[in-house]
Design a protein around this nucleic acid. Structure first.
Lengths: 304, 304
DNA sequence: CATTCTTGTGAACAAATGTACACGATCCCC
DNA sequence: GGGGATCGTGTACATTTGTTCACAAGAATG
C-alpha cells in the first residue's frame, strides 16, 4: 500500500515529495504521481466546509431577474480548459442536486452536457436517461444524446435508452417515417414524461453547436429570416420563445418545443458571449427554469 | 466569506492561486494565505482513507520483539523541525487512541511530551491530567509537567492538576518535607491511580533532558557510577530497569519507579540515537508497554 | 499626543510541484 | 518472432506555491 503511505506522509505529516521519496527509496516523480493517483481514486478526500455557493449573490439575482427556480454559476477563468472543466463540474453538481433515485432524465444533444456527463459523480441512482432527439452522424466526440445517456447511466448505475434515428432526417417525410417507428415513438414518449430535462442552449452564430454546423449557410439564413434566435435540444425558437416552424423543424426527429416545456425541471446549460441572446430569450420565456452558466455570462445577463 | 470561496475555487475547481486572485480582485499572496488559513481552521479538511498505519511492519515487529502492547512510528526526515512535528503528531494520535473520557492521565516531564501536547487534537474528553513530579525552575519552554497538564486540559476541556513542588529539592530532607505537604500528597496519590502514563525516556549523555542538564557533572558521574542508563519521568533506572537509589533519587519529588510501573498504560515517547540504550532497557524491562518513536530509532532498536 | 506593538500587505526570492518529452520494457496481435 | 501499441520510468524544464523581508496602517499603551 505504497499509495496510502505516500498520501499520509504528504497530507498528514506535511513532508515534501522529495522527503517522502528519500524515506521510501523511490524517485520524487513517482511520489508526485502516486499523490495524483491518490486524489483521483479518492484515497485522499478533500472537503471544503462551506455551505454557501461561490457566487451566491449573482445566483440569487439571476434567479430573481428571470424567474428561475435555481441558478448555478461556475468561475470564469482565462484558461479555457479549466473554465470548461469548472463549468462542467458545477453542471454536474446542479444535476446531482435535482436528481432523485429512479428519476427519468431527458437529454438534449450538447457538448456542454457531454462535459457534465464526464464530471458526474459516481453514485448509484438507478435513474433512466432518455434522449429527446436522434443522433448526429459522424464524429461528434460523445455529444450524441445516446452517448450522453450511456455515460450518465454508467456513472449512476442507471438505464440508458437509445433513440434509433437521426437528429436531422433527409426530408420531412423521412422524419415522419422515423417518428412512426414504434421503437422511436416509445422512447420519445418516455422522454416526454421525464422529470428533468438537461439540455444545452445554442446560439445562431455560424458554426455554433452541433445542429447548426451540420447545416449549410443557406439553411442557416433561412432560419434567421424566420426569426430564430437560438435552439434548445435541437428545436429553434424565436424572440418570444416560440417554435420556429419551417423546413428544418419538420426534419428534426425529437420532442417538440412544447413537449420540452412540459417537463417540470428544465435545466439549461450554457455559457459564453455567443449564447447571450439565445439565453436571454430562453430564460425570460421560461423555456428553462434552472440554469447553469459561468460568472462572466451571468454578469452579462444581469447587466443586459 | 472570501475564505470559503477561495477554498472552493482552489480545491473543487482546481484554479491556481493566481487565477483565483484575478477573478476575485485580490493579490495572489493573499489567496495563498487564505488557503493556508482554510486548512488550519478546518474549513478545508483532507482525509486519507487508509486503515493501515505508515510503518505497520516495523510497529508489529517492535511490539513482538519487546513484548509491547502497541507501537507507533513516525517518519524520520532530515529536516529536524518536520521530523519533530511528525513525531509529535503521531504521539498525539497514539495518546488519543488510548484515552477514554474521564480518564486520569499522569504526565512526566519531557520536551517530547510537550510537543505532543501542542499537536493534540481539540476534542472534549473531560480527562484529568496530573503531573507525576514537580516542576523545573527557570525557562523550560512548556515542558514542565504542570504546563503540560494545562495544555492538554485546554485542548480536551479537561482538568489540569498542579503539583506545587520542585522536581528536584535542594536536599533529601527538603524533598521529604515537600512530599509531606497535603497538597502534594493528594496530587501524587491521584497520579498513582492514573489509567495512563505519558512520559519521555531520557538517556544519560551530557546535557540530555531537563533533569540531567540541571545537574552538575559530578552528580552525573555519580549516577553513571551507580549504573544508571536512563530515566523515566525523573526516575533513573539501571540496566535491569531497576531504580537507581541514591542521593539524587532521594531529592526528586514525584512518583517512584515502582509506582510508575503500576500504572496500566505506560506510553513512552522517545526517539534518537542518544536514547537507544535507555529505550532498550525501558522496553525490555517493561517500564513502558506502549511506545512512540520514529522510523530510524525503530530500525535501530530492531537491529540491536 | 507620541510611541510601541501588532497586524496586514505585497515584492522578491526560494522551494516545491507538475508537465513534456524521451527512453526502455512488456504485452499483444498478427 | 516482428512490429506496434501501451505502460512505467526518469530527466529537464516550466509553473506554481510558499517564505522572507520591508513597509505601512491601525490599535494599544505610555
Amino acid at each position: 500500500m505504497l499509495l496510502g503511505r505516500v498520501a499520509r506522509m504528504y497530507y498528514e505529516h506535511g513532508l515534501t515529495h522529495q522527503e517522502i521519496a528519500d524515506t521510501l527509496g523511490v524517485s520524487r516523480i513517482r511520489v508526485t504521481r502516486l499523490l495524483a493517483e491518490a486524489r483521483e481514486t479518492g484515497v485522499v478526500e478533500i472537503i471544503v466546509h462551506v455551505e454557501e455557493s461561490l457566487f451566491a449573490d449573482d445566483e440569487r439575482d439571476l434567479a430573481a431577474a428571470f424567474g428561475l427556480r435555481q441558478v448555478w454559476i461556475s468561475p470564469s477563468v482565462a484558461d479555457e480548459q479549466k473554465a470548461a472543466r469548472a463549468f462542467a463540474s458545477v453542471g454536474a453538481e446542479a444535476l446531482a442536486a435535482k436528481l432523485e433515485p429512479d428519476a427519468i432524465v431527458a437529454l438534449g444533444l450538447s457538448t456542454a452536457v457531454a462535459l457534465v456527463a464526464e464530471e458526474f459523480p459516481e453514485q448509484p441512482l438507478a435513474a433512466s436517461f432518455v434522449p429527446v432527439a436522434g443522433s448526429v452522424s459522424g464524429l461528434v466526440n460523445g455529444a450524441n444524446p445516446h452517448e450522453l445517456a450511456l455515460a450518465f447511466a454508467r456513472r449512476t448505475n442507471g438505464r440508458a435508452f437509445h433513440l434509433p434515428a437521426p437528429l436531422l432526417a433527409a426530408s420531412p417525410e423521412a422524419a415522419a417515417a422515423s417518428l412512426a417507428d414504434p421503437g422511436v415513438r416509445e422512447v420519445l414518449e418516455l422522454a416526454a414524461r421525464a422529470d428533468t430535462l438537461v439540455a444545452g442552449i445554442g446560439g445562431t452564430a455560424r458554426g455554433q453547436g452541433l445542429l447548426l454546423s451540420s447545416l449549410g449557410d443557406a439553411e442557416r439564413e433561412r432560419l434567421l429570416a424566420d426569426g430564430a434566435v437560438g435552439d434548445l435540444a435541437g428545436r429553434f425558437f424565436d424572440a418570444d420563445g416560440e417554435a420556429v416552424h419551417g423546413a428544418l423543424d419538420a426534419r428534426v426527429v425529437g420532442l417538440g418545443l412544447d413537449e420540452l416545456r412540459a417537463i417540470p425541471n428544465r435545466l439549461g446549460i450554457a455559457r459564453g458571449e455567443t449564447k447571450l441572446a439565445a439565453l436571454r430569450t430562453a430564460l425570460s420565456s421560461g423555456l428553462v427554469n434552472l440554469l447553469v452558466t459561468d460568472s462572466d455570462t451571468a454578469r452579462a445577463l444581469l447587466a443586459g
